[in-house]
Simulated scan of single mutants.
Amino acid sequence: MLEALAGTGLAAAAGLNAYIPLLALGLAGRFVDVVQLPIGWAWLSNEWVLVGLGVLLVIEFVADKVPAVDTVNDWIQTLVRPASGGIVFGGGALTETAVVTDPAEFFESNQWVPIVTGVAVALAVHLAKMALRAVANTLTFGAAAPVLSTVEDIGSVSLSVFALLFPLLVVVVLAALVVALVLVFRRLRRRRAERAVAPA
């Protein structure tokens, strides 16, 4: 149960920012005794992988805050974030998945289930984020991009930390994010309706 919550939290975080949960999981596996990465995910704690993830995180951090560039980045991340979600769910859920040497055995043993679950969770969060960002950018002429991006980064960091250290709180954080998403979406819809009425 706790493993599934940890994996879900990390995958949801990956839907907001692909590199934050990967980096968090890798750093935790390297420096925190409580987190033991499965053998198949030990590479995440390699120093070169951590440096690479750090560089990618900086690029993502900047690109996601620039209007228009953030839209292009979101399209590119449609492949990256779900892949990240699969990796972190697999590692965060402490699955016994090892390096895949025999694909038939991999599928027969159901080792693919956590990975596919992580992909699905991250993709769902990413698509919701992408839809919200498109509406917000249209209504604010891109001014909302840096604000929303910062909120998403904070959400990704929070989910990653809670998933690794306090998995039970993942439910609370996810619920808060859903409520925030609904409130922002309603506000944007109201603003769009006001704009449509204004010329008349």
Rank of each mutant, 00 (worst) to 15 (best):
G118R: 00
A98I: 15
E108V: 11
A144K: 02
V178Q: 04
A4H: 15
G92H: 10
T97V: 14
G40R: 04
L174W: 02
N137H: 01
V51M: 05
A180H: 10
F106W: 11
T117I: 04
G40I: 04
L37K: 10
L94S: 11
V157F: 12
G9E: 11
P21G: 05
I59N: 09
G15I: 02
A136S: 03
T78P: 01
I76T: 13
V58L: 09
M1P: 15
F166M: 12
A143L: 07
Q77L: 14
Q36E: 15
G15N: 02
E96K: 05
R186S: 03
E108K: 12
V62S: 09
S109D: 01
S84G: 12
P38R: 01
T138R: 11
F61H: 08
A143C: 06
D153I: 14
V119Q: 00
V184K: 04
L164P: 05
A4P: 15
V66Q: 12
V72P: 12
A196T: 07
A175T: 09
A145V: 04
V125H: 06
R30D: 10
L50T: 03
F185R: 06
T138V: 05
T8I: 07
N73L: 13
G26I: 00
A200S: 07
V125R: 01
A122T: 01
D64V: 11
M1A: 12
A198I: 15
G52K: 05
G7K: 02
A128Y: 08
A14T: 09
H126A: 11
P103N: 09
A131E: 14
H126F: 11
K65L: 03
P167D: 04
G26T: 00
T71H: 11
S84P: 04
D102M: 09
V80K: 00
V157A: 07
P103M: 07
V113E: 03
K65A: 07
S158T: 15
D153Q: 15
L164N: 07
A136Y: 00
L27D: 09
L23A: 14
L168I: 15
W43A: 13
G29W: 11
A83W: 06
W48D: 10
A124S: 10
F162I: 12
Y19W: 14
V72I: 15
G54V: 06
G142W: 03
L50K: 07
L164V: 07
L37E: 13
R186L: 10
G90W: 00
E96C: 03
F106G: 01
G29A: 08
F61I: 06
